[in-house]
Amino acid sequence: MPLTSTTFVAQTHNLWGDHVAEQRRAPLDAMYRHRQPDLLATQEQRPWSRDLIDDAMPEHSRVNDEFPGWATQSCLWWRRDLFEYVEHGADDVGILAPDARLFWVRLATADGPILFSVAHLTWSGHPKEQETGTNQRTPQAAAIARRLAELADGAACLFAVDINDIGPPNWEFGNNGFLDSFTALGRHSPVTHPVVPSGFEESVGTRLSPLASPRKAIDWIFLRGPVRARAAEVVEFFHRGVAPSDHYPVAATLTLTRD
């Protein structure tokens, strides 16, 4: 696939809601002042973290929409000198958290359009999954893959996700023509959750079990269409010994192709 001149860095980052927010505010600000991706997708965002990123990345625009999920769940940013906004949307794909959706924006570049999207699949500790014993993420992944095929219509498609799983939902994307940025480079992803050591006080175990969360890769950038991965990284960043979140960001350097 011949490469174009449009190369950029995309990043996904779970911002961990309001947990230990005061300890993490300065590290989060420092990260997005020091390491600014060209495209950014977030999960577990809150209004304060969205506004902090706005201030840290003044050369970027983001989706502005009254739907609450753009403030309380996810948002999408792009560098204004590389991308031109076309349209955006938020589609219900069965994710169980309030105002959680498949969030997307269509962008134009000198070498063709990009569909940039994000979602946060349902946590395995959700009451419905605990009651039924049924994986909620696989049908969500299937619905997302179908919707992205409709929206992209052959354009370069980027999907950022906290997938909250290590099996069937990932396979669903792979079987629908997506590659994650690490597989595309013949690599396995390093761990993305949890960040250890974090620099802030935390307990072992959850309200559902005394067991510690296993270290795993659950944060991904999936690609389909005329776009090629050139590099992929799980970003390690600390500010005065404190991490911005309990998830590492994942960044990928990507180039649009001509075919």
Rank of each mutant, 00 (worst) to 15 (best):
H13P: 13
A108N: 15
S213T: 14
T255P: 07
L179Y: 06
L96V: 00
E236V: 11
R146L: 05
Q43C: 14
E22N: 12
E84R: 14
P168E: 15
T253Q: 04
W16G: 12
P113M: 03
V63C: 12
R33N: 00
C75D: 15
H193M: 06
D111I: 03
G205T: 01
K128R: 12
T206Y: 05
D259H: 11
L28H: 09
A160E: 05
H126E: 06
I95Y: 01
E233L: 01
D165T: 08
L208E: 07
D99M: 00
D51K: 12
D246Q: 10
G186I: 14
R230N: 09
R137W: 10
D38R: 04
R240I: 02
R25V: 09
L211K: 13
T183N: 05
N176W: 03
R228M: 08
R207M: 13
E129I: 03
W16S: 15
A10N: 11
G112L: 04
S189M: 14
V227H: 12
A251T: 13
Q136K: 03
P214T: 10
H126V: 04
T72Y: 05
T253V: 08
D165F: 12
R146W: 06
L102Y: 08
P27W: 11
L39V: 15
A156N: 11
R33H: 05
V161M: 10
R187H: 09
A212S: 07
V234F: 04
H120D: 09
P226V: 06
W70Q: 05
P168M: 12
